[in-house]
Design a protein around this nucleic acid. Structure first.
Ligand SMILES: NC(=O)c1ccc[n+]([C@@H]2O[C@H](COP(=O)([O-])OP(=O)(O)OC[C@H]3O[C@@H](n4cnc5c(N)ncnc54)[C@H](O)[C@@H]3O)[C@@H](O)[C@H]2O)c1
Ligand SMILES: NC(=O)c1ccc[n+]([C@@H]2O[C@H](COP(=O)([O-])OP(=O)(O)OC[C@H]3O[C@@H](n4cnc5c(N)ncnc54)[C@H](O)[C@@H]3O)[C@@H](O)[C@H]2O)c1
Lengths: 233, 233
DNA sequence: ACGAGCTTGTGACTTGAATCACAAAGTCCG
DNA sequence: CGGACTTTGTGATTCAAGTCACAAGCTCGT
């Protein structure tokens, strides 16, 4: 299993295990954890946990489980979180400000190293202890501060432009909060977080379940035997 | 194809198509759109677009494409966005406030109908034109306002409790911003948005690509022929 | 030192999603 | 009206993820 490329789906779950392990490490009572326990905490099934962890190597002990500290270190290392990665936020509106003043990053392997905007009433001001700079200074400051992650929190229209500026500044990892699809060179990774999309997905399942409920209700009233429960998820 | 259950992956893309169609509908020049164009805009491939849309029915015309307005309506209907769904935000800190004062919801099928917190210095204040209520009044107000979606923006510790209160109030759809896994009854759908997880995933690919780059660099200097490019994503 | 009892690690299998590739169905133009 | 040209809709295929199930390996008590 070792040395095989780690599946994307596994990579996406490692941070969840990390979170669970951190909370276990905090109360020092439990030195070791079983795949079953970890699965409970992460909300997945135990076989998946074991398979996921096996991609990192054989870090468990049969009959015992996984050493919490050791596993914690291995996942941290695999995710590249052994030192704090410097990130920049572009767009200091409602969302950008919330992100900039959020204290939770430091404990999770990141630090906000620079802030950018284009609005003259924002540039030069202080947000969460950091001075907002003009977007035009992006490349210089990114180089200077060693920023490796760009967080786009501008309105959707300028998002593409900002992404290009980030790519031009040598940044390879972008997190995009603007509801817009941005195109970047193939060596740049973009992940998108779109709140409206999440809500719309919820809306779909909401209405579907409701439709099923009313259909069942109707057939019950008609005395028709209920065929399929169709719970799913 | 019709009447088959819509795959989860497709549901997750429908909002992206919706967004693209909305921007097409705005400038009224283009009455119809091909799967190829839509694919470009959504950042996916054309075959996937066609297959996704085919789950909703045969709404295209061969040789022409899809009627923008008609498709727009069909997706809106499928997602259950024909009327604004009332949502509630719980936890009015940095993030909760940004969400509450965000104007983009209305245009995307949602409206913020209620706000909740437990902090006495927050309860009773006005945020984005809505008075913050105490969490204890959740059930009453949810019923009264017909809220169907709950958005958790509290710290991680109270997230589980809040989720239970929401479920108890009859809410079936929860969007959770707190970095915590919440357990709910099977008829409730939870989606999680976790910023730190997204950053950690970026970190993984960042460091992996870097590792590949330095390995290639090393082998180049040694004159070893470079075997596999291994771009992926 | 041995057997009962856990728990891991992983091949084999199942399920679901993505991609391919092409016939079917339409448009457009001479 | 017919044939060149588009573009859809969808079986067939490939690829990735999830689940199952069990032998291998460890601990601990006796
Ligand atoms: N606020 C929310 O809760 C929320 C929720 C979901 C999505 N979003 C999305 O996040 C993004 C930001 O939302 P917001 O509410 O903070 O918006 P906002 O309008 O409050 O802030 C946008 C900020 O970006 C700056 N900006 C504009 N163009 C820029 C450019 N070219 N370069 C750099 N900065 C630029 C503006 O000066 C402003 O400060 C939007 O795309 C929005 O759709 C926000
Ligand atoms: N701020 C960000 O940019 C950001 C980014 C990523 C994730 N998050 C997550 O979002 C959540 C909120 O972040 P924040 O920065 O707004 O935190 P915050 O501390 O500023 O606000 C939390 C709010 O929740 C309220 N609260 C606490 N317990 C509650 C309860 N039981 N019921 C109702 N309300 C309660 C508090 O009174 C406070 O108003 C956190 O879980 C955080 O990890 C925030």
């Amino acid at each position: 299993m070792r040395n095989r490329p780690i599946p994307e789906a596994t990579v996406a779950r490692l941070p969840v295990y990390l979170q669970a392990l951190l909370s276990l490490a905090e109360d020092r009572r439990q030195m070791t954890v079983s795949s079953e326990e970890l699965a409970q905490m992460a909300g997945v099934n135990a076989a998946k946990v074991r398979k996921d962890l096996s991609y990192l190597g054989s870090y468990g002990t049969r009959g015992v489980g996984y050493d919490v500290e050791y596993l914690l270190y291995q996942i941290t290392r695999e995710l590249g979180l052994t030192q704090d990665l410097p990130a920049a936020i572009i767009g200091l509106g409602n969302l950008g400000r919330a992100l900039a003043s959020f204290k939770g990053f430091a404990e999770r392997g990141f630090k906000i190293a620079a802030l950018f905007d284009v609005d003259d009433s924002v540039v030069g001001t202080d947000v969460g202890g950091i001075t907002v700079r003009h977007l035009d200074d992006l490349k210089d400051i990114v180089t200077e501060e060693g920023v490796v992650i760009g967080i786009i929190a501008t309105p959707p229209t300028p998002a593409q432009l900002v992404a290009e500026r980030l790519a031009d500044a040598g940044i390879k990892s972008i997190l995009n909060f603007a509801p817009a699809v941005v195109k970047v060179p193939p060596d740049v990774t973009v992940r998108k977080v779109d709140l409206s999309i999440e809500l719309q997905i919820l809306s779909f399942y909401q209405q579907r379940n409701q439709a099923i409920a009313t259909a069942r209700e109707a057939s019950r009233r008609l005395g028709t035997p209920d065929s399929s429960p169709q719970t799913r998820r």
